[in-house]
Structure formats: structure tokens, C-alpha cells
């Protein structure tokens, strides 16, 4: 131990610490302010991303094998359940088509071009997930080249799962809504309550103990109830309107008793994401 604290080693340790803190602050600043990381980092990430595919593709193949066996065992039950839903689905689909056409016609009549609801999807596969207990992050296989930009919302299955945090040429990082970092999770969302009154707000945090998204600072008097649907509101930034987020699971007072705090059950399963789509506002 005497040797460890000899002055040369001490100097090395201190220099390393300074470089470490410096690099950390710089990369946090880059992440918050710039649209793309520095070119060197981007280039490195692209190369590593290609290497990763060599390992990720067989691993995902193995998982698909297990998943299909599991599915096979469940098929009978699932089939029965699905049959009952099919009729309903067809009905909704037809109605949706009619409404969409009507909406288009009305928009044309009113000379309204594109509104906040229109968006297109870029489909991508998940390559890997950050092996860390704090950064809930996945890497997807589409980047700048496919038109992905920073802060775009990402959807998997039924609903929103996160936003794009870093874009490289051929891959990008998606921060999930389950991330508890202080500077993430700021979506504009809305809840349509009783009597179709709309409550607008922002996702403020994530409660990892109960797996709920928290929407804070609500001062509206509109009555909300359990099971109300939550969607993105399209206000501010690049997130389109009408992406399904989840359902209201609990309504509580905030710490000071002045505003309400709504706990939202996310629609998508955040721990089983294989294929995602990035929503691009028209």
C-alpha cells in the first residue's frame, strides 16, 4: 500500500480523475444541446454497431426459437381469445377508414394542411440493450441515414416506449420511459376525462417500484378516473399527437396537496422490445 501512494501514482490518479470528470461533463453537455454526437464518436459507434450485429443476430435467432416454441404451446388458448376479438377489430377498422376519409375531406374543405396527428413510421430492430441498471437504453439499427432525428418518439407494439437520445449514421440510442434520470421523460401528454374534457400535462418522472409513469403538476379540475386513456398531445417539439401512452391507474395529491399527480400504466411492455418504430411528424 505504501507503494500505491508514491507521488507518481498519485499524480496519475488525480490526472485520470480530472480527465474523467471533464469527459463526463462534456458528453452530458453534448447530449443535452447538440443534435448529433461528435463525428469521432458517431464513426466509432457505427463500426461497433456493425460488429454487434454479428453477435446479436444469432442470439436473437436463438431467442426467436425459444419464443416460437413457447408460442406453439400457447396457440390454442390464444386462438380462442383472438377469435372473439376479430369481429370487433374488423368493425373498428372499417369505422377508422371511413372516419379517416371524412377527416381528409373536411380538412381539404377547411384548407387545413397537415395537423399535429399525422406521422409516418420508420421501422427498426433492437440490436442491444445497455447492460447497466440505471440507463434504460436500447440501441436500434436505424440512424441518420434512414431519417431518424434526435427526440423523435419511439413506439413498440401498442404504445410509446421512449425517445431517441443519440443518432449515429446507422444506429441510434433510444432512452426508454422507464429511465429515471433527471433530464429525461419530458413528454407533453393529455388525458381525455369524463365528458371529453382534456387535461394537458407533462410526464415528470417514472416510479420504478410500481412500473408507472408519473404525470405531475395538474391543476385542472376536470374529473379523471381509473382507466382513462392517455395519449401524446403533440404540443412542443417533434412528437406527433395521438400516440397511445397508457391508461390512468391511480390519481393522488402531490407532496404539497396543491396539484394532482396521475400514475399511468404504460401500454407497451418495456422489458420485451424487439421491433420498434420511430414516429416522424409529417
Amino acid at each position: 500500500m505504501q507503494k500505491f501512494f508514491s507521488s507518481r501514482k498519485l499524480v496519475i490518479v488525480i490526472v485520470c480523475l480530472i480527465i474523467s470528470f471533464g469527459l463526463m461533463s462534456v458528453s452530458v453537455a453534448f447530449r443535452n444541446n447538440r443534435n448529433t454526437p461528435p463525428l469521432v464518436q458517431q464513426f466509432g459507434n457505427d463500426i461497433v454497431g456493425f460488429g454487434d450485429r454479428i453477435v446479436a443476430i444469432p442470439m436473437n435467432g436463438v431467442q426467436h426459437g425459444f419464443a416460437s416454441i413457447h408460442n406453439l404451446l400457447n396457440t390454442y388458448q390464444e386462438n380462442q381469445k383472438l377469435k372473439s376479438k376479430v369481429d370487433q377489430l374488423a368493425q373498428t377498422q372499417v369505422k377508422d377508414q371511413v372516419l379517416e376519409r371524412e377527416n381528409k375531406q373536411l380538412k381539404r374543405q377547411l384548407n387545413v394542411g397537415s395537423t399535429l396527428t399525422g406521422y409516418e413510421k420508420i421501422n427498426a430492430a433492437v440490436i442491444t440493450r445497455t447492460p447497466s441498471s440505471w440507463a434504460s437504453q436500447v440501441v436500434i439499427n436505424k440512424g441518420q441515414a434512414a431519417g431518424v432525428k434526435k427526440n423523435m418518439p419511439v413506439i413498440a407494439g401498442p404504445g410509446l416506449i421512449g425517445t431517441v437520445a443519440e443518432v449515429n449514421k446507422t444506429n441510434s440510442k433510444v432512452v426508454l420511459i422507464s429511465n429515471t434520470a433527471e433530464n429525461s421523460n419530458r413528454f407533453a401528454i393529455q388525458i381525455i376525462g369524463a365528458g371529453s374534457k382534456v387535461v394537458n400535462g407533462v410526464i415528470t418522472s417514472y416510479d420504478s417500484q410500481s412500473n408507472r409513469i408519473v404525470m405531475g403538476n395538474i391543476t385542472s379540475k376536470a374529473k379523471l378516473s381509473k382507466g382513462d386513456r392517455v395519449t401524446t398531445s403533440g404540443l412542443g417539439g417533434v412528437i406527433p399527437k395521438g400516440i397511445y401512452v397508457g391508461t390512468v391507474s391511480k390519481i393522488a395529491e402531490d407532496d404539497y396537496g396543491l396539484a394532482k399527480k396521475v400514475y399511468i400504466k404504460p401500454a407497451a411492455n418495456l422489458n420485451d422490445i424487439e421491433v420498434v418504430s420511430v414516429a416522424v411528424r409529417n
Binding site: G51, D52, I54, V55, A56, M59, N60, V62, Q63, V126, I127, T128, R129, T130, P131, S132, S133, S136, V138, V139, S208, Q209, S210, N211, N269, N271, D272, I273
Partner: peptide, 29 residues
């Protein structure tokens, strides 16, 4: 070394339901 590095991410992705179930997280390294 590189294979182990990529396996970390792949395992985290494939078994994320088991490894990162709330509130515990088992980080493979």
C-alpha cells in the same frame, strides 16, 4: 473480449424481462 462485450448487451436485451425486473437489476458483466 469483444464477443463477451457484445454478449453483455445481447443478454441484457434478450433476458431484459428477467434481468431488469423491478426493483432488482442483475447486470451481466
Amino acid at each position: 473480449e469483444f464477443i463477451a462485450f457484445f454478449l453483455d448487451g445481447s443478454l441484457s436485451q434478450i433476458l431484459s424481462g428477467t434481468l431488469y425486473r423491478y426493483p432488482n437489476s442483475l447486470v451481466p458483466s
